[in-house]
Design a protein around this nucleic acid. Structure first.
Length: 933
RNA sequence: AGGCGGGUAGCUCAGCGGUUAGAGCACCGGCCUUACAAGCCGGGGGUCCGCGGUUCAAAUCCGCGUCCGCCUACCA
């Protein structure tokens, strides 16, 4: 206790202290044998591969840890399934790039096994770092479990899934046109291609001469080099311009071979370009399908690295973009060029490296997604899985209802290797759960396993159950499947959420989670994505610990330079940063950062993070600290065991308990309806605006008057402890560290365990007594109004806060006078009044400043305090406001339609309000008249 | 092209059918009042994007428009 009394709020110190204690008390591990408490299982999404948390991770961690702490406190048996980006292209790319830079080697130089060992090293090192960073925020990542599930459990599950789907015909191998990244040298799924629109380009035209020499047909293209693989020209069957051309042959202007002009209504839009389309089945998805329809020849002109192959004749060996120029030049030279237009095209880039993706013919493995998606959609339609916010369901259906087969093979080394073996004797493909040494069909030993690995998201799709031990019947499986909740950013609905649902439903017959809670994305203060190349990344740890301007500048410069950003751009980043962070980023602590993020978890799509806002919530943490110091200072003689008669509670005690009850209800409602920001704000405002600004101030007289009234003092202490204890528990999911530190120091009547997270989350049940105190809110409001009015006069008349003033309160009703009299001491204190007279009628002895509240008038005799003209101006201002509102209400009330059609209580309320305002108006007008007269 | 979300105080955002539209930061005036200057007290500031409609009542519901952002899509 004394610790807190003597120190200021120091987040760093507290944050270092409590984490081990939470860990020791089993916070991060559920008990799979515990069948008494309701299970709650939540999935944790991938962290990144660079070993640095970004703000998006901090948000995810904050939300999940908040939910988990709340669930824990409610008594649920919580299991958190952590995960990392355990088998991605990104990981391989980063390690490979590293290898190249430090040793000048490629993964092929190292060999498969040695390379994978490198990747594991990398994963462990970065994973460990991420664990550390998560601790700072109050959360955890179980790295050992992660390694296990990747190595053994998950591999087991992946093979089981692959074999089953293969046997059911839901996984197949085929030659298809897929997305190929020439830099990563691998196939990609449709989702891994990012489309950029409006890239400036050109629509370039050239002519194919008819083979019989009778003319030519002009086509338009954005990718001239693909003409080396053209095997048809297509026109619309109804296009009058081309009727005579259909069926004729053209001659390739560069390669000499001939092919036909065909009619195809599906491919050709006669309005576009020249109305004639060159068809390249090997390098364009539409053309590929046209090729299938017309049984066209498929000529692949590309190598896997994006250079042209031997099919390209003299252009073989050139890079695709070089070849584009070369082909154009060659055609121009031979006289077949037919002009150009500027044209904004859309380009697909590799999600990981940004390289322009090529449609490329190759043999790959696919998942037949249709039936799986239909079942997943149905589960959502049947409300077995609910999306929060619900609006995402539409997005989900949009994609699911029009899903295409999923290319799952990747030409990489890092990942789960495809469990298929090819027999060179009989050609049979054996797909097996166990490693094979002989062909399953002919028994030949001449088999070789597929070199490719599976898409990261294939194994990720199994996460909700592979981590629980599936396909074995484990206690974890029985207890925690289906999971209660999936919490993640909406950017991976398709990548991950949808696929987990498809797999979970298909393999286990049950949707993997009851609720999908999707949170917004963290963006910079201008709403841009945080990105190192824009230079607007805010590292959550920099907010927690704070960072000086120079360090921040250096960091951003280094990040940008490491990415190879142009020097001019780097200078711009530095300039912007210097402007925005002239003082660096102040130390805010994990609690403040968490609270900021959580208070902004609305249902929108973006969270524009302004670091200055974090500072505001750090002030809040400080406020909690200081209010607690005040309490502890005044609790030295407090006996937690003492019997307190609630009848000793004063109005302030009953009022604060009633307000606390309301805050508790709001907080719980927020949690239950996923409006977490509502919970956070309710407690924030209770704590600061009501507890600190009013209750503590009202409690001071009782607490300071040491022995005047021991019963009242004891009652006040009891309420002080109770409010603080409850408020801390309410706040714990948002600000775990500071609440724990203080809660530990509070005197308690019973053993409260080693940590606040084992204490119950406050609910209405704790406030059976306070329900009746709701009746005390109105009288309290009356007292607050009087105090505010007195303060207003003081403030507006420029009376120094130190100076005590005389006040006369005139109240016609005896009841009101009684109330004010009972709280005269508090009113005097809070409004800094020396003599307070409460009368039924005030006979003014001279000019006075006047304030009006409902049921009472306040007078401050002028006597050298106040300038008459200023007082007139002040009151005239107030009168103006009142009249403006009154006019509005009168207008409403004078409308017959309002009085007759609006609900009676609304009309009644308006009438009362009007009456009240009219009384105030009259009093103020009279006051002005007196002053003038 | 389709779908989704948003435009509220100088900034970042709450409110989403009923009293005088709120918060944090910023701003103005006054205070080191024995928990807290990371604070206290008082104050100023808003055609709630535009137009139309529904309603006794609209920032809130509906329609159209406009601007911004995101997602999905095979237009050469």
């Amino acid at each position: 206790m004394s610790d807190i009394l003597n120190k200021g709020y120091d987040p760093a110190e507290i944050e270092a202290k409590w984490y081990p204690i939470w860990e020791k008390n089993g916070y991060f591990h559920a008990d799979e044998t515990d069948t008494q408490r309701p299970p709650f299982c939540i999935v944790y999404p991938p962290t990144n591969v660079t070993g640095t948390l970004h703000m998006g991770h901090a948000l995810t961690v904050a939300i999940q840890d908040m939910i988990i702490r709340w669930r824990r406190m409610r008594g649920d048996n919580v299991l958190w399934l952590p995960g990392t980006d355990h088998a991605g292209i990104a990981t391989q790319m980063v390690v490979e790039r590293n290898l190249k830079v430090t040793e000048g080697k490629s993964r092929h130089d190292l060999g498969r096994e040695a390379f994978l060992e490198r990747v594991w090293q990398w994963k462990h090192e970065k994973g460990g770092r991420i664990s550390e960073q998560l601790r700072v925020l109050g959360a955890s990542l179980d790295w050992e479990r992660e390694r296990f599930t990747m190595d053994e459990g998950c591999s087991h599950a992946v093979r089981e899934t692959f074999v089953r789907l293969y046997e059911e015909g839901l996984i197949y191998r085929a030659d298809r046109l897929i997305n190929w990244c020439p830099r990563c040298m691998t196939a990609l799924s449709d989702l891994e291609v990012e489309h950029k629109e409006g890239v400036p380009g050109e629509l370039w035209r050239f002519a194919y001469p008819l083979a019989d020499g009778s003319g030519e047909i002009v086509v338009a293209t954005t990718r001239p080099e693909t003409m080396l693989g053209d095997t048809a020209i297509a026109v619309h069957p109804d296009d009058p311009r081309y009727q005579a051309f259909i069926g004729k042959n053209v001659k390739h202007p560069l390669l000499g071979y001939e092919f036909a002009i065909i009619a195809d209504a599906e491919l050709v839009d006669p309005e576009f370009g020249t109305g004639a389309v060159k068809v390249t089945p090997a390098h364009d998805p539409n053309d590929f399908e046209t090729g299938q329809r017309h049984k066209l020849k498929i000529i692949n002109i590309l190598n896997s690295d994006g250079t042209l192959n031997e099919q390209a004749g003299e252009f073989a060996g050139m890079d695709r973009f070089e070849a584009r120029k070369a082909v154009k030049e060659a055609i121009e030279k031979s006289g077949f060029a037919r002009g150009r237009n500027d044209y904004a095209m859309s380009i697909g880039g590799c999600q990981r490296c940004g390289t322009v993706v090529e449609p490329y013919i190759s043999k790959q493995w696919f998942v037949k997604a249709g039936p799986l998606a239909a079942a997943a959609s149905q589960a959502v339609r049947d409300r077995e899985t609910v999306f929060v916010p619900e609006t995402w369901e539409k997005t989900f259906f949009n994609w699911m209802d029009d899903i295409r087969d999923w290319c799952i093979s990747r030409q990489l080394w890092w990942g789960h290797r495809i469990p298929a073996w090819y027999c060179s004797d009989c050609g049979h493909i054996s797909v097996s759960r166990d490693d094979l040494t002989a062909c399953a069909k002919c028994g030949s030993a001449a088999i070789v396993q597929d070199e490719d690995v599976l898409d990261t998201w294939f194994s990720s799709a199994l996460w909700p159950f592979s981590t629980l031990g599936w396909p074995d019947e484990t206690p974890d499986m029985q207890h925690f499947y289906p999971n209660a909740m999936m919490e993640t950013g909406f950017d991976i609905i398709f990548f991950w959420v949808a696929r987990m649902m498809m797999m979970g439903i298909h393999l286990l017959g049950k949707t993997p989670f009851a609720t999908v809670y999707l949170h917004a994305m963290v963006r910079d203060h201008e709403g841009r994505k945080m990105s190192k190349s824009i230079g607007n990344v805010i590292d959550p740890l920099d907010v927690v610990y704070g960072i000086g301007k120079d360090d921040l500048l250096a960091k951003r410069r280094a990040d940008a330079e490491a990415l190879g950003i142009a020097p001019k751009q780097v200078e711009r980043i530095v300039k912007d940063t210097r402007k925005l962070f002239a003082k660096g980023i102040p130390t805010s602590g994990a609690d403040a950062l968490r609270f900021t993020l959580l208070s902004m978890v609305g249902q929108g799509r973006d969270i524009k993070l302004d670091v200055h806002r974090v500072e505001g919530y750090r002030f809040f943490a400080n406020k909690i600290w200081n209010a607690s110091r005040f309490a502890l200072m005044n609790l030295k003689d407090y006996d937690p065991q003492a019997d307190i008669d609630p009848s000793a509670y004063g109005l302030a005690e009953r009022w604060i308990l009633s307000r606390l009850r309301r805050a508790t209800l709001t907080a719980n409602e927020g949690f239950e309806t996923h409006h977490y920001d509502q919970s956070a704000m309710a407690v924030y405002h209770f704590f600061w605006d009501e507890f600190c600004d009013w209750y503590i101030e009202l409690a001071k007289p009782t607490l300071y008057a040491k022995d005047d009234n021991p019963a009242a003092r004891a009652a006040t202490q009891r309420v002080l402890v109770r409010v603080l204890d409850t408020a801390l528990r309410l706040l714990h999911p948002f600000m775990p560290f500071v609440t724990e530190e203080i809660w530990q120091a509070l005197p308690k009547s019973e053993d409260h365990g080693p940590t606040i997270m084992l204490a119950p989350y406050p609910t209405a049940d704790e406030f059976a007594d306070a329900e009746a105190f709701a009746a005390d809110e109105a009288p309290m409001a009356a007292i607050q109004a009087v105090i505010r009015a007195a303060r207003n006069i003081r403030g507006e008349c420029g009376i120094e806060p130190g100076r005590r003033i005389p006040v006369v309160i005139q109240a016609a009703e005896a009841e009101r006078r009684d109330l004010l009299n009972r709280y005269a001491a508090e009113i005097r204190d809070l409004a800094r009044i020396d003599t307070l007279d409460i009368v039924d009628h005030y006979d003014k002895q001279g000019p006075a400043a006047k304030g009006v509240v409902t049921g009472a008038d306040l007078f401050v005799p002028l006597a050298g305090l106040i300038d008459i003209d200023e007082e007139i101006a002040r009151v005239t201002g107030q009168l103006g406001k009142i009249e403006k509102e009154l006019n509005g209400i009168d207008a409403r009330l004078s409308k017959e339609s309002f009085v007759s059609r609006a609900p009676a209580e609304v009309v009644q309320k308006e009438r009362e309000r009007a009456e009240d305002l009219r009384a105030k108006q009259a009093k103020l007008a009279e006051h002005i008249a007196e002053l003038k007269g």
